[in-house]
């Protein structure tokens, strides 16, 4: 399967297989006017299968969302048809309105204008906790 290479844009590579659509939604790529391609289940030597997203435009990506959903993903910045920068993701220290607190006793359940903020409390096990009630984020 061939997808045309892009001249000026972004390639999000090494996305965990099956997470491409979730990232597309969370990054609000549906709102873009440019061409966006989601390629699912691409064969990968390193990962077995992976997803790839190609965006035919230079946009600001929310790296925190990307780092949380698929920490092994890479972001390739393409300019004039050439790879000019490759960014690796890291787990973000703080997530705002990416995941939502499910604790029914948390203040965020009644005051819905409050931002849902989670801090990374255990990097090894990828555990985030709500800043208000300290419940584990899921």
């Amino acid at each position: 399967m061939n997808i045309d290479s892009i001249k000026n844009g972004i390639v999000i590579d090494h996305i965990e297989a099956g997470k491409g659509m979730e990232i597309y939604t969370l990054l609000h790529l549906d709102l873009l006017d440019c061409s966006v391609a989601i390629i699912k289940n691409v064969n990968s030597q390193k990962m077995g299968k992976k997803d790839i997203i190609k965006i035919d435009s230079q946009i600001d990506l929310d790296m925190d969302i990307l780092g949380y959903v698929s920490p092994d993903a890479t972001v390739d910045i393409i300019k004039d048809g050439k790879l000019c920068e490759k960014k690796k993701m890291t787990l973000p220290e703080k997530l705002t309105n990416v995941i939502f607190c499910k604790n029914p006793r948390c203040i965020t359940t009644t005051e819905q204008e409050l931002p849902n903020i989670f801090n990374l409390t255990d990097k090894k096990n990828r555990v985030y906790r709500c800043v208000y009630c300290e419940s584990k984020g899921e």
């Binding site: 006793r105 203040i107 359940t109 005051e111 409050l114 709500c130 800043v131 208000y132 009630c133 419940s135």
Partner: peptide, 23 residues
């Protein structure tokens, strides 16, 4: 009764807030 309410209060108040129990 809601967990985290005193933190929200402290973030918005211009005076000190003491948590006297949240949930």
């Amino acid at each position: 009764p809601k967990e985290g309410a005193p933190l929200v209060a402290a973030t918005n108040a211009s005076i000190p807030v003491i948590n006297a129990g949240d949930g």
